[in-house]
Structure formats: structure tokens, C-alpha cells
Design a protein around this nucleic acid. Structure first.
Lengths: 215, 215, 215, 215
DNA sequence: GATGAATGAGGGTTCATTCAT
DNA sequence: AATGAATGAACCCTCATTCAT
């Protein structure tokens, strides 16, 4: 139960009123979807791994797709969570972060922990986004509405302070995100078995990013 | 037929002796695997789109998995093609590329064309790599044997010339690749509909990379 | 509740001690069995329409089949009710009905009201009789024991009075019943939407029947 | 094969190009649908009785409902076949049938043979018509377009000749059909085990009908 | 008495693969 | 070489029924 804290957090269990069996189902589904993919995982396998009858899955999730969405939606939400906090931008402007680097550090560290904690669910989200256009659309909508605009304000703020190169904000956002995501993808998906020194490699990545973007 | 030049190139048709029907099958499979994923695509759908009988697929490819590999292997091969040329490193050392930037420019442009040309096949490779460990292993093997070593020599060469920061070569390689790949992924997979000015954005990306990595 | 008088009558509620929920269940079951058939109706649908929990049905009726029988048996019983009254034959002989026509009129009118009132339950009975041999056997048993014998006495009575053709009583019974049932089936099942003038059409049907059967 | 002549006729095999396996499937389906009803019959049972794999059914009939329609449509067609012949009405008017009785005799005999031959398929049609409104609609459409109008002409023809009572033609049609159908239903569905003398009972039925309808 | 979560057998249907033609 | 009918295992999902609450 304790080891399942991540699941509780991801799904916001207190609000959602999830039964033990439902948690078993979700955990089993996340693991198997991450490993084999949604389409290649059968509901009977999920039931077996979750220790419930196959019918039980369908009592809680009308269809297999619903089960996928029950995983993907909270993950999508958590993926952009830092940007959803109301005071997020205000924090930046009111000198919570004096420099873009501090902001980047905070985001990087936060997303590093996020990926480390929820890796399987994140794999499911990214893998299935390629195949289910409804998920892709949701992701894009959320990104544009809740992340992009705020990120842009922040970038322009630091450009005015003369800290960042006068590239189009879109470009700076893209380079920032792909640099961070590039590390996380390499670290957790592509070469998880490499003997990483996370602290140091993140430090180098940040240095690279700041040098690359400086005015 | 003319429009299928990319398929010919990808598969190296002259060597392989592929019949018209085989090409139809491969093209249909690439398109459908890219869109819906391998597991969610049925052989009968492929047959229908290729305009052949269901049995014909299995005359050429013993199993559905074999058909996937017939797509994935050449794509994997082409993915690292520039590094497979024997004289590749020699070219760098013998002043084909006087600066790391020139090398990066060449690689970037080349891979940009590659992705643009073979996008569906590349999507299949990357999507399915997550689900088929045999493909992932092959990819890693080829990368380590044919790309990483040569890349490392090149990086060290330019570090000795004082052009590049004295970071571990692995880190420089990673940052170089994820910066290029980050652009290509954003450009072709995540936001293909955004009104990109490719030339300019690639230029900015290179400037960013070189600033980030300079000594 | 008032509108449900028919259900009360059909089921003989006073004797049976049926709770509100049981009545809801029976009504829902009758309606759905009539519309979609017993086999195509699920107990969960019945529960939903009846406004009770799925388990509640099985507290009152051990199996789905038992629920069907709880509908079919009273309907079967009411179907032949007039003939079950002890003094039924005596009424005929003691000049309650001076002519066969009067008897037929009484039966016709009575069965017309019966079908009109209990149509859904009657549909269930007839539709399911085709699939459940136990129901069919019960019907035949009741018909032979309680209807056929009495009907025969009556027919022979009027044959002796010279009112009816000297056909075998079975034949007269059959023609009488199929003529009446033919009207009711056309009227209520096959063409319920036709603009019927019931009075007139029943009058014509009786004239036809009496002409056809007269000595 | 020889014993299956009825199936060939019903389905118009020569035109339809039905394989041996398809015939097995259709025969098995007709028998089981007639006995247990469409909804209560599983495709696996049909496959077993037909001696084919379950998948084979779905190769020929996309859904179970399609299989039902493949049975119901030809049966519906054959049900009204006599009335579909182009020269049918002409035959009546040009003294093929001098009296309504001759016409009735011809129809009766013809339909008697029809029911006797195709009984199971007819049971399927009538039983399922109650549950599938699409089938009911088709039946009504065909009846109105191809049977009712012609029947009405014939009835009016004999009314003008003074042979038939001056009832509304609809009523005469209804009484004619329910009298014939009443016999056939009693004979083949309700009491098939009774020791019928078909010739004689049909003769009595016709006498009854003609007496009932005469002017 | 009433509930509704849980069950697992069985439902209709799809699938990759085989093989006679 | 190519076909497409045939297969039966496996798919997702529904069902009647049970039972702890």
C-alpha cells in the first residue's frame, strides 16, 4: 500500500474514491500498457495480474478504452501540473526566480522527479498519444491553453531583463523543453541502464542550455 | 511508381529483388503501422490496402512480425547510414569539416532530409521500439558499434582543437543529438501543422547548440 | 398505481401479497419481454427500468426463468378464465345463452376485453410458448382439461338443437376459436395501427362465423 | 443433398451460388432459430451443428443478424410468392378461376404445401418478426404492395359477380386469410401431433369460409 | 429486505495463419 | 506465385447469479 503512494498521488485517490480492486486494476493496466502497449495487452491479462475477474474491469470501466483514459487523463494533467498553479507566473515575476536559470532549475528538478515517479504512466501517455488522436488533441489543447501562454510571458520577462537571446519566444520555449525532455528521455527511456550521475548531468545540461540561450 | 522512389531507396530495391506486390504490401504496412500501430493493424487490412489477397502477405513474410522487421530493419539501417560510410571519420579528420559546426550542419541537414523523406517508416521504428525489445536491442547495438565510437572520435578531435567544451564526450554527443532530434521531433511529429520556417529554425537551433557547447 | 389495476387483476394481488418493488419488477419484465423477447432482455435492464437493484430481482425470483413463469402462469390462467368458472357450462344449458351466437358473442366480447387489457402479458405468453416446451405443455394441458371438454359439450348441445352444422365438434371449436383469435391477432398484433371500428368489425366477424357454421 | 431440395428452393440456390458449407450453416441456423429462437441460439452452437468452425459463419455473414436476414428474406419472399407472379391477377380475371372458391382452393393448397415444406423457416420468420421491427416493416411493405392490392381486385371482381357478401374487401381478405392461416397454424404449430385428416379438414374449412362469405 | 460489487462462463466477433486450388 | 476459404484461439464485453454488507 505504501509503495503505491505514487498511484494515489497520480490519481488523486482521496477525491476519486477508488476501491482496492480498482487500484489493482489501474496499476496492472499501467504496467502492461507501458510494457506491451495498449493494443497488445488483453483485458484478461490485466485481470489476471490485478487479481480480479475479467468482468470486474468492465464494471468499473465500460470499455478497454475507458480504462486507458482513466490512466492517461490524470497523467496528462500531472504532466503540466506546475503550470496549472494559479500563482505560478506571479511567483516568477515577484522575484521568486531572479534569473531564468533559477526558473529552469526549478522546472527541471520538478519534472525530473515527476518522470522518475510516474514513469510507466508517462510511457503510456506518450506511446498511445501516437495512436489515439483524441488523446493527442487533448494534450495539445492543454499545452496551448495552460503551458504555452504562461511560458511565453516568463520568457519575454527575462528577455526584457536582457538575460535571454532575442530569439522568438517559441524557439526559446522549444529549445528549453527539448533540452530538458531530451535528458529525461535519454535518462529514463532510451538508456535507463547507463550509470548516470544525475546531479552532474543535469548540471551540465543546464549550463549548456543557459549558454545556448544567453543574450 | 515515381512517387515511390523513397520506398525503393529505403529498401534498396535493386539488391533485394522486390516484386510490385511486395512493394504494395510494404507501403501499405508502413502507412498503417505508422497510423494505428503494429498491434492494432490487421493483416487483412494491409492486404486490402495493398490490393493483394490475405495469403499473399504470408507467402512473402512468414509472420506478421517478419513483415514488421522487413520495414524496421532497413529503416534502422538508414537511420545511422551516414556513420556507416567507411570514409566518414576520415572525411572529418582530413579537413572535410574544418569546424564542429560544419560537421553538425552536414549531419543536421542530412537527417532533416532523411526524416522528411521516410517519416512514416521512422515513426514505425520508434513507436515499435518501445514494445519490441529485440528491435530496441538491435538499435542499441548498431548505435554503440557504428555511431557512438565514431562520434566520440570526432568530438574528441574538436575538443583537442579547443572548439568544444571539455565535457565528457558522451554528454556532448547526447546534447548534440537531442538538440537535433528535438527539432525534428517537434517539427515532424508533435507539431507538423505549425507554420515552420525550416531554414531559419534550423539555423537558430545550430547557433544555440554551438553556443551551448563552445569551450 | 391506479393505472396498474390491470397488473393487480392479472396477478391476483390480494392473494399473492406482492410488494411495491415486486410489482415494479413484474411490470418492467412484462414490458421488456413483450418488446424484445425473454432471451434478449437482461435482468439488469429489468432492474434498471423497475428502479431496483439487480440483486433484488433474485431475492423474489430465484432465476430469470422463474420471473418469466411468474408472468406466464397467471396469464395462462386468465387466458382460459371464463371456462374455469364452475357454473360456466350450467349457465349455457340453463338458457343463459339461448343460441350459440349469444354464447359466441359473450366469449368474443370477454376475450376482446381481455386481450385489450393484458396485451403485453399475452404477447409474452404466446411468444415464449414457442421456445419453452414446458410452457407449451402447460397450455395444452389446461386447454384440454378445462376448455376443450366444456366447449365440446356446449357445441354438441347446440348441434342437438339444430343450430350448428353437423361437423365434428373439434372442427367447430377450431373454426370458432381461430375466427375470434384471427380478429384479435390482426387487431392487436399484426395491424394495431389500422383505423379499426371494433364494434362493426366484430359484428361482421360474428355474422361470418355464424353463417359459416349454421346447419 | 436430395433431402435438402427445400433449402435449395427456398434460397434459390442456383442464382445465389451457395457453397456446401454455407448451406450447412443456413440449415443449422434455421433449425436452431426455429427451436430456440434467434436470441437464445449461439453462433458456436450453429457452427457445431453445421460442422464448420465458428469463424466460417462470420466469413459468410458479417454478423449474426445478417445470418438471420439471409434466412428471413427469402422466406418472406416465398411467403407471398404466388402474388408476385405477373399474370396472377390476369389468371383470375380470364376465367382461370370461375369462382372465388376455386381461387381460395388454389391458394389454400398452395400455401399448405408451402408451410409443410418450409415450416422451420416460416417459424423463424414469424417468431422473429415480433422482436425485429425492421423485419416487421419489410413484411408489411411487401404485403401492402404486392398482396393486398391484388387480393382486393380479386375480391371486388367476385363481389361484382354477386358471389361474395358486400362486406368491405379488407374484411373479406382478413377473414379469408385468418381462416386459412388459422388452419395452418393449428395444424402445423399448435397441434402438429393431432391425427389430422388434412384433405377432409381443409375441405370443411373451405366450406365454412364460403358459407361465411357468400352474398 | 435490499443492495450492488464481484464473478467467470459464455456471448459475438476478429485475428494471424494455413492450404487446396 | 497468388488466391481466398477455412480455421479455432483469443479478443472485448455481457450475462445471470451470488453474497457480504
Amino acid at each position: 500500500m505504501d509503495e503505491r503512494k505514487w498511484l494515489f498521488d497520480l490519481l488523486n485517490v482521496e477525491e476519486q474514491q477508488l476501491s482496492e480492486k480498482q487500484l489493482n486494476i489501474l496499476q496492472a493496466a499501467i504496467e502492461m500498457f507501458a510494457e506491451k502497449g495498449y493494443a497488445a495487452t488483453s483485458t484478461s491479462e490485466i485481470a489476471k495480474r490485478a487479481g480480479v475477474a475479467e468482468g470486474t474491469i468492465f464494471r468499473h470501466y465500460k470499455t478497454k478504452k475507458d480504462l486507458l483514459l482513466a490512466i492517461v487523463k490524470p497523467t496528462l494533467f500531472q504532466s503540466v501540473a506546475p503550470f496549472l498553479a494559479k500563482k505560478f507566473v506571479k511567483d516568477v515575476f515577484e522575484n521568486e526566480y531572479e534569473h531564468y536559470e533559477q526558473f529552469v532549475r526549478a522546472v527541471f528538478k520538478n519534472r525530473y522527479e515527476f518522470v522518475k515517479t510516474y514513469l510507466p504512466a508517462i510511457r503510456v501517455l506518450w506511446q498511445e498519444m501516437a495512436f489515439h488522436s483524441d488523446i493527442k488533441v487533448q494534450f495539445q489543447t492543454i499545452f496551448i491553453n495552460h503551458v504555452y501562454d504562461k511560458f511565453k510571458q516568463i520568457v519575454e520577462h527575462f528577455q526584457q531583463k536582457g538575460e535571454l537571446a532575442l530569439l522568438p519566444p517559441e524557439t526559446i520555449i522549444r529549445l528549453t523543453i527539448t533540452t530538458i525532455a531530451g535528458f529525461l528521455a535519454t535518462r529514463f527511456l532510451i538508456m535507463p541502464d547507463y550509470p548516470w550521475d544525475d546531479e552532474q548531468e543535469m548540471e551540465r545540461t543546464i549550463q549548456f542550455l543557459m549558454n545556448g540561450l544567453k543574450a
